[in-house]
Simulated assay, not measured.
Amino acid sequence: MNNKAPIGIFDSGIGGLTVMKDIVEHLPSYDYLYLGDSARTPYGNRSFESIYQFTLQCVKFLFKQNCSLIILACNTASAKALRTIQQRDLPTIAPEKRVLGVIRPTAEVIGLHSDTGHVGVLGTSGTVQSGSYEIEIAQQFPNLSIYQQACPMWVPLVENHEHNAPGADYFVTKYLDQLQQQSPAIDTLLLACTHYPLLLPKIRHTLDSNISVLSQGPIVAASLEDYLQRHPEIDEKCSTNGTHRFLTTDAPELFDQHTSTFFGQTVESEFVKV
């Protein structure tokens, strides 16, 4: 009997496709099952309890698809739901399965990129308010100074295909200025939202060339490879046919309209109820 199944990738909507794109490029042989909870996106302005319940429902759905490993590509879900799911739910509902997030892998390496010890985190209001990055980074690099900036207009700009338009320059400059006012010594910026890499050209154009800008996708992809090497008991449960399947809780045609922007190619998604 073949118990192998795809690696599940979950996001509150479509932004997690930027992370999946890097994972697929880094680990192309695996099968992947993407679930976007587009019917309830965005998660960033919702309560802790709502985000936890929504995320848990989607995790359980992916478990029913036999996924033994799930990546929460959503920063808000990673910040507000992951720890509770790992500590409270998994031991009861699926002790042999694993759910990983995007915050820990980033926190484990961000300090290696900074010379000044001053790091900026750009995220949604929900991610910033959770304080998750401050907590995780402090555990790995206690001497780093962390400065956070919420960028509430960046996701709408990307989802409305305005991220390359001249009007986006105002909001890119606004939030970067607010962050740098907190500390002129910041030399490393983390894009702590899956939508933000699409604004990277404008971000780099606005910043001094000596400031490093990190996107999460490549970091998460490298961390996943390391995790699978260290946990062969999980790796052997992951199927390797190089297939990709996309599920959405909203209209597939709406989901599919945006995939080329985030994933680099068009896809055909399927509607599901979780």
Score class of each variant (00 low, 15 high):
193 C>P: 12
166 P>Q: 02
164 N>S: 03
168 A>T: 00
186 I>M: 03
135 I>K: 14
173 T>E: 14
189 L>F: 08
190 L>C: 06
166 P>Y: 08
165 A>E: 11
160 N>Q: 14
162 E>F: 15
164 N>A: 02
176 L>D: 09
151 C>L: 09
128 V>K: 06
136 E>Y: 12
138 A>I: 00
139 Q>P: 03
162 E>M: 15
139 Q>N: 13
174 K>N: 06
185 A>M: 12
132 S>K: 08
165 A>Q: 15
130 S>W: 10
188 T>L: 01
171 F>W: 15
127 T>L: 03
170 Y>H: 09
185 A>N: 12
126 G>P: 11
152 P>L: 10
140 Q>L: 03
159 E>K: 06
143 N>A: 13
147 Y>K: 05
145 S>H: 15
132 S>R: 05
152 P>C: 13
181 Q>T: 03
182 Q>Y: 09
160 N>F: 05
158 V>L: 06
188 T>V: 05
147 Y>E: 04
159 E>N: 05
131 G>V: 02
141 F>K: 05
178 Q>C: 09
157 L>T: 03
133 Y>N: 00
157 L>E: 01
143 N>T: 15
128 V>Q: 08
175 Y>A: 02
184 P>T: 04
129 Q>W: 04
148 Q>P: 07
194 T>H: 07
149 Q>F: 14
143 N>S: 15
128 V>H: 07
139 Q>A: 07
147 Y>F: 15
193 C>I: 01
160 N>S: 14
129 Q>E: 09
179 L>M: 11
176 L>C: 09
155 V>N: 05
134 E>T: 02
186 I>K: 00
177 D>F: 13
141 F>D: 04
182 Q>K: 15
177 D>G: 02
188 T>K: 07
167 G>C: 03
195 H>M: 02
158 V>S: 11
132 S>Y: 03
132 S>T: 01
139 Q>V: 04
171 F>P: 05
182 Q>N: 03
183 S>R: 10
162 E>V: 02
162 E>W: 15
146 I>Y: 10
140 Q>W: 12
146 I>P: 14
160 N>K: 13
171 F>L: 01
186 I>D: 02
139 Q>R: 13
154 W>Y: 09
192 A>Y: 15
177 D>N: 14
188 T>H: 06
187 D>I: 02
195 H>T: 04
173 T>R: 13
178 Q>S: 10
135 I>D: 08
166 P>G: 07
157 L>H: 07
159 E>P: 09
165 A>K: 14
178 Q>H: 13
151 C>Q: 07
150 A>M: 12
132 S>Q: 06
136 E>K: 09
129 Q>R: 13
153 M>C: 07
159 E>F: 12
172 V>R: 06
171 F>H: 09
161 H>W: 03
149 Q>C: 11
137 I>G: 03
192 A>M: 04
183 S>G: 11
146 I>K: 00
